[in-house]
Nucleic acid binder design. Structure first.
Lengths: 170, 170
DNA sequence: GTAAACATGTAACAGGTTACATGATTGT
DNA sequence: ACAATCATGTAACCTGTTACATGTTTAC
């Protein structure tokens, strides 16, 4: 149930409406924890119901601005310190690799080469993003940069692996 | 809907019962596409219903042995060659990193150091596995080895990144 | 005036997890 | 005789996706 914690986490920064949070999910969290509009609004209603957040203000167009409560912050801290990261990593990319023997070697090679290309692309995109961001020294920047570095290393690793694998298949 | 394709993929090798397939999911596919007993039996019934597999034989204890049909093989090939890998990668590990600013630096450091440890452990386990397996030259071995190499590189990357990140927070 | 952006909510469905329920066969 | 393993099936519940439905405010 990490969507809940993603919302709590974003609200530590400042109060925000469902719409604001949706935008945050579409930008900074898109590659880490994607969520849909429907999901976000539903979860916010639940969170307000259990007292982890409150409606701090109401604005035009029915806008509701949510703020983190003490209980909400405690729950977030608990999640960060006490619970083990253990989510199953499903990878359809890797699942396909398991069954590439069904294809002709040329087809398998093509798949792996394409994968290398996609990873290179992903790398480039993050690289551009890293250059564009104006990093300062606050917490968000520090940890944002660490998360971005992960993305860079991940894509580079995958690119190199896919190239190597494509060679193996010939 | 990749569970379906994982089942079809395993059945290219040889006919198998739900129970057999469950064991395969618990071993070789556990790190790539985990599935529960309940899910597997339900999906097998559906697949038999749409003609992608058939009940080739029935054994003791109500055992049903499923075999891939021509349609099933065609569907698998289609999945491998025509559909783009695009599954969203959710990472609760990385999501936590985004919000580490909520914690004291020592706590954040601890989280990252622990992550490095877990990755090292994952690496070691795969390494042992790689040594234990008797690799021969068939398709399964070739692509199994490629998948395993991915796991090794992945864990190594994560270990190094977590160590580096822990230093940043120090 | 009208398009884009702001803003929320709900219903239907697909995929996945946990738990319950049942029974047959094999090995000791 | 008893436990372990083999073997299947179903129900309840949670999470996530897609689509529908509605209305307001701002900018041009």
């Amino acid at each position: 149930m990490s969507l809940r914690h993603a919302l709590l986490g974003l609200l530590t920064e400042r109060p925000a409406s469902g719409y604001d949070l949706l935008k945050r999910f579409e930008t900074s969290l898109a590659n880490v924890w994607p969520a849909t509009q429907s999901q976000i609004y539903t979860e916010l209603t639940k969170l307000a119901g259990t007292g982890l957040i409150t409606v701090a203000a109401e604005g035009p167009r029915g806008r509701k601005e949510y703020a983190l409560t003490d209980d909400g912050l405690a729950e977030l801290r608990h999640w960060l310190t006490e619970t083990k990261p253990q989510r199953n990593t499903r990878s359809d990319v890797l699942l396909r690799v398991f069954f590439l023997g069904v294809l002709k070697p040329e087809e398998a090679h093509e798949y792996l080469a394409e994968l290398a290309g996609l990873s290179e692309q992903g790398y480039e995109e993050l690289h551009q993003l890293a250059e564009a961001v104006d990093w300062d020294d606050d917490d968000l920047s520090v940890y944002g940069r660490i998360a971005l570095e992960y993305g860079l290393r991940f894509h580079a690793m995958r690119r190199d692996w896919a190239k190597w694998a494509a060679e193996q298949v010939g």
